[in-house]
Design a binder for these strands. Sequence first.
DNA 1: CGACCCATTGAGAGCATTCAACGCGTGTGG
DNA 2: CCACACGCGTTGAATGCTCTCAATGGGTCG
Lengths: 249, 249
Amino acid sequence: MTNGRKASIDAPENVTCLSCPVKSLCLTSGLAPGEIAQLGSIIQPPVALESRETLVTQGMPLNSLYAVRTGMLKQVVTRESDEQLITSLFLPGEIAGMEAIGTGVYPGTLLALETTFVCEIPYEKLSHLCGQSTGVCQGIQHLLSQKLHDERLRLHSLLNQTADARLATFLVTFSEHFQRRGYSPYHFRLPLSQSDIGCYLGLSQETVSRIMMKYQRQKLLLIRGREFQILDLERLKWLAESSGRRKKQ
Amino acid sequence: MTNGRKASIDAPENVTCLSCPVKSLCLTSGLAPGEIAQLGSIIQPPVALESRETLVTQGMPLNSLYAVRTGMLKQVVTRESDEQLITSLFLPGEIAGMEAIGTGVYPGTLLALETTFVCEIPYEKLSHLCGQSTGVCQGIQHLLSQKLHDERLRLHSLLNQTADARLATFLVTFSEHFQRRGYSPYHFRLPLSQSDIGCYLGLSQETVSRIMMKYQRQKLLLIRGREFQILDLERLKWLAESSGRRKKQ
DNA sequence: CGACCCATTGAGAGCATTCAACGCGTGTGG
DNA sequence: CCACACGCGTTGAATGCTCTCAATGGGTCG
């Protein structure tokens, strides 16, 4: 399961957590310098994944977590009944593989949606570090707890929103994520097919297409291939909020 | 925030984690006896909540987690827009309040659906214990990770299932939960109104009613008030699996 | 007895799905 | 070089599921 690739980017010794552009979103957030150094000593330097390359395979025993540095990962869970679920997407600064901690087995396959650099975090060592550094221990718990609650909210927004609102929410969320990472909130790349988006949002691919078209006709968006340009973020946010389906006034 | 009630059930000294009927599902699962004793020293004896009594209020700072001993809790998240979401239900052996770890604030209100006994776990002390016992630390991480993945799967099953399948899944899940807790999987009490169930499953109350009626007509179920009797669990499981809405063969 | 919550049931409307056809670009093999 | 398959996206038509609105009745609590 350990991918044997060692394609570290140039100047590996410069590439520490301290110089990482997305460190504020990662585990290191809020740690004392000493603790960051400890973490840095177990986190591997970034490794490149090509587009479509798989990082871990569903069912394999937990070996490492992976911090995304650039690019994007998706987690695909295949069910008995052959259905494919895209249960989550990982952007720079996020840590993939944490769903495996509970059972010790990766519950889904992680694969790169575009060229992606990830930092491997051997779980064994991280777990050991937990016993020494309360900061690290709490950092992991905070991340997990936060994700859990986010997921609960996401569930309900998806359940109660129309397809229009789901797409709008999806786009706004990405816009905000990119903004938080220092990129433009108005222009970004989503290396996902319409099928992927549909799968992630619980919609059919055709519906995704229709709504994307509609939004483009309404001058809210401009899509060329996988490049998304948001022309009217305010209105998109408004759509995300207000075109829900909620009853009871 | 700490509810001043001290209505411990009789013989408090007998009421330790060791004698707890649902300990195998709780944090204590898989810990060494010494670690259980440590945990036991910080976990408060069970306290009774009346039906509809609130345990913690949304927005208050995290103070304690709560292990459910008997009864049931629901977590209600109220959004800006006044909508009420039931984001989760807690059965005996489950630990409520963990969503608050990430932000330090309870993201929702916890309240009892029926008479419920909970064991308070002061988070401050638990967090301190984490630094001393790797078992406790890992136990929390495992629980959180497990819940996170469960929630991701739940999201997708809700998104891709018809209302019929959602209800069937809901009932089967509860049946299994009760079975795992030593109760009958065929006959149990769900202290939820149809509105609550609808809210939890993303359905309208009327739809819940119609499907419940249909299932009773088909002799799958028998409902009297809040008492549920499952007459054909196999077929219910089959419905949960197969009446999805999935495309692509 | 009236207020209120909860559940049942009917009718109509709307949204999203499925099925289907088509176009476009890419890569592959004849 | 061309034919073809294939993935991806667009678009139309029809079906059907679930929602909303509305009316009704039973139960409980004051």
